[in-house]
Write a protein that binds this DNA or RNA. Sequence first.
DNA 1: GCCCAGGTGGGTA
DNA 2: TACCCACATGGG
Length: 217
Amino acid sequence: MWKRIYHTLERTFPSFTVDEWWGVTEPFARMAGSVLVQNTTWINASKALDRLEEAGLLEPAALAGETVERLAEVIRPAGFQRAKSAALLRLAGWVVEHGGVDRLRRLTDSTDELRRQLLLLKGIGPETADTILAYALTRPTISGDAYTRRLWQRLTGEVLSYEQVRRAILAELTEAEDLRRLHGLIVEHGKAICAKRLPRCSACLFADDCRYLHDSI
DNA sequence: GCCCAGGTGGGTA
DNA sequence: TACCCACATGGG
């Protein structure tokens, strides 16, 4: 089923690219962005990311040397700045401990092992961990976030947990690049529906009148 | 004004 | 395990 959803979305958005969708390509910027976007719009997260860049803090070592108070002020536009600044410090520290982003990307540890380590960091939950693994560390994983679960529910009527959706997708798609694209496409699809400006985003997202998927799956 | 956004952690039953 | 709530800002 997920393979078919993936191919349908690929046909619906033929010019989709992960890099354009993310807006940033640097691995550490994507790691920071994964934390900043928690329960926030990408627009707000992006403002905070720009401010980190201006402050010269998109380097793990530089960021790890900041105080939580200063960091909170810099990332303010993303909201939840107290929690997010502390989480960013822990994340930067974790990267530094591993000898930097490049070393981390070359590590031979299993994806599950890296995921376990990320989840030990307070402020990094399943979705943030999977986003970091997939988009910054190029690991074959995917988040079973709200968009994905809602899509599944609209198509099948089944309500699955984060981990259930994630496992279901991983059972069908194993290539890191496919998983990165699938998740981005799901979000793009949601945005396309939202662009119709229906009453509420959460209501119009994958609404019953959505023909992209219902017609072709 | 009011609701919501690509969550997380701590508490309670 | 399954809900409930606080956490903060900006846009529609």
